[in-house]
Nucleic acid binder design. Structure first.
Lengths: 216, 216
DNA sequence: GTCAGTGCTGTGCACACGCCCAGCACGCAC
DNA sequence: GTGCGTGCTGGGCGTGTGCACAGCACTGAC
């Protein structure tokens, strides 16, 4: 017996139709914002009847949570796989700079503003994601010989994330002045840091930078 | 005769009631997200009938545009006044770091996703604001003796804006790990830059730093 | 052959929304 | 005192929404 008195029948979580509905919802959200994500419009986009949405999801909150979770898990997985292959700062920046991720975040945070059930879920994910990312950045920085005092990992991360977010946000508005310059600048800055790392690996002794050994 | 055949009577733009409605709408938007901003809820929040909203605003789009414009103009004015008084990097950062501004931007960008009339308005404002800000940052950087190649003004601005935005965004979620560290770090970095500026002003000759104008 | 489980749908309810219209009350101009 | 402009409202229309419920068709277990 279920602990809940509500007896409404809910479709199987493994159903392919269910997945199609979620896909449609995701597309809607990306293309038209969260306000466009309604049972009717999801169904019509998936070529189904709107009641099906309620058959597979008890409430719209449930649907949004599932939608978010699915994407969040995929995101985390993608990041972890990519980092495992190449944990360099450059790669971390490239991953963060993907505008899809930023746009996704933006929309969900706006949504969280009036769907409390989502808020908790998003916060949990954000914290998990954050700490995993910070760890990766920390390793990359250590590898580049950057001292934690010189540039704390969390600061580097927030800068990358923030930059990625403004860029994505402005892109959606069609405002792109200075973006190229910025991306190039960050690329160069990271390349410089990574060059340090190469130096250290080739020669046992620190290279040009031994004028400041005490900060490290 | 007006050029528009529609003959509906619209209330005076100077009306105090109208202002109250806008205030209520703004509060709603901040507290519950843009989806909560409906004629009925605005009116109820302002203690009026919902038809009044339609009396003062031909369409909800009109209301949103007005809402945005009001805030945008106030924002620009506040910034320009503050910068005129103190155009230092530190002050620019402080102005940008105000979470209210960032949250406001965030919500409206999300809104622009499905209200095309707003999109153009927001983009126009963003461009205006951006160029005015870039100019201020450029002046502050020149004043600190930072070369444009070392740190382009647009990059500095986007970094500040981006950082302010992530911080604000995470705050609304209750995720604040590392925020203090980051704010402190930025503060220190800026203080260092400004110290350069003080050096240059006190002694006519450049101080200790002219040996390494190209490094970061 | 029966029967339970499963995917799906027709019908419908209560509610909120944007917007319109006709008209009331009031104050000022003439 | 009449007329007019202005602030405001009762009533209502058409649409979209989340969600419930009863019931259909099909399939595999027994």
């Amino acid at each position: 017996m279920a602990s809940v008195p509500s007896s409404r029948r809910i479709g199987s979580p493994d159903s392919e139709t269910r997945t199609q509905l979620l896909d449609a919802a995701e597309r809607l959200m990306r293309e038209e914002g969260y306000a466009a994500v309604t049972s009717r419009r999801i169904a019509s986009k998936a070529g189904r009847k709107h009641q099906l949405v309620h058959y597979y999801f008890r409430t719209m909150d449930d649907l949004f949570i599932e939608l978010f979770r699915r994407r969040a898990e995929e995101n985390i997985g993608r990041f972890e796989r990519a980092i495992a292959q190449d944990g360099s700062l450059g790669n971390l920046w490239r991953l963060n700079a993907d505008p899809r991720g930023a746009a996704f975040t933006l929309e969900f945070v706006a949504l969280a503003n009036h769907r409390k059930a989502l808020r908790a879920e998003i916060a949990r994910y954000a914290e998990h994601f954050r700490s995993s990312q910070v760890e990766a950045v920390r390793r990359a920085l250590v590898d580049s010989g950057v001292d934690e005092d010189e540039l704390p990992a969390i600061v580097a991360l927030l800068m990358m994330t923030g930059l990625a977010q403004v860029l994505a946000l402005e892109d959606t508005l069609g405002v792109t002045a200075g973006h190229d310059t910025t991306v190039e600048f960050v690329g160069r800055a990271i390349a410089q840091l990574e060059a340090r790392s190469a130096d250290r690996r080739e020669s046992g002794t620190p290279s040009t930078r031994d004028d400041a050994p005490r900060e490290g």
